[in-house]
Design a binder for these strands. Structure first.
Lengths: 107, 107
DNA sequence: CAGATATTTTAATAATTGTTTAACAGTGAA
DNA sequence: TTCACTGTTAAACAATTATTAAAATATCTG
């Protein structure tokens, strides 16, 4: 089980509109990710500000990056989100996961 | 669907160790809830500090309270957690919810 | 009513977080 | 090598958040 300090860190990383926006973009983008500058443009945020937020997200383990030429591509790492959601459903949904998983259809 | 500002608010409310601790206690306690003073004692936090955190949690809609004599009982409101987890799985788990719902067993 | 208990509010302060601007570092192309 | 491009870092500042101590409110008990 994920320890609570790591959960707090992940929650804090997502608890800011720009960072949540970044993460959502990266999830939608898939494994190839998106270049930093393109994210900045999409969200209307200055590169410096964005770089600051990237640091928070990657420090929490939610995103990673790879350099490609002079571009830096960021992409989502699902593991931490996975663990975070698991922690919330286990500890914050009253034992029975269904309490906080309304839309899941089990075919 | 929950709007992203409400999600950010809920995430921020839980992104602090004392508040996450409060919420976990309340989830475990069930509908009758726990008196403020008992929570303060359980977590080793001063009543004033706790009162401050209660405000953040209830403002995010995650907890509610009822007065009983001179005690104030707090209890979890699962709806917001529910919506938050739903938002995360829909927007932050790459479309397929399973990506971030590892432990769910569909019998 | 007076005193004790339970909690909140206020004000002050400390700590953390977010934004901006300017300077810096790495990469690729002429 | 020199220039343009992409992104990060550093420093300064503003804004927000967390903690503390003291005062205030509200309820119960004698």
């Amino acid at each position: 089980m994920m320890e609570s300090t790591r959960v707090v860190k992940a929650l804090a990383a997502l608890a800011q509109s720009t960072r949540l926006g970044v993460y959502r973009l990266l999830v939608a983008a898939g494994p190839e990710g998106i270049a930093a500058g393109q994210i900045a443009e999409s969200l209307g945020v200055s590169p410096a500000t964005l770089s600051f937020h990237f640091k928070t997200l990657s420090h929490a383990g939610l995103i990673e990056s790879r350099q490609e030429g002079r571009f830096v591509f960021y992409f989502a790492n699902f593991e931490v989100m996975n663990d975070m959601v698991a922690y919330l459903t286990e500890n914050c949904c009253g034992g029975n996961a269904e309490t906080c998983r309304p839309a899941t259809k089990c075919k």
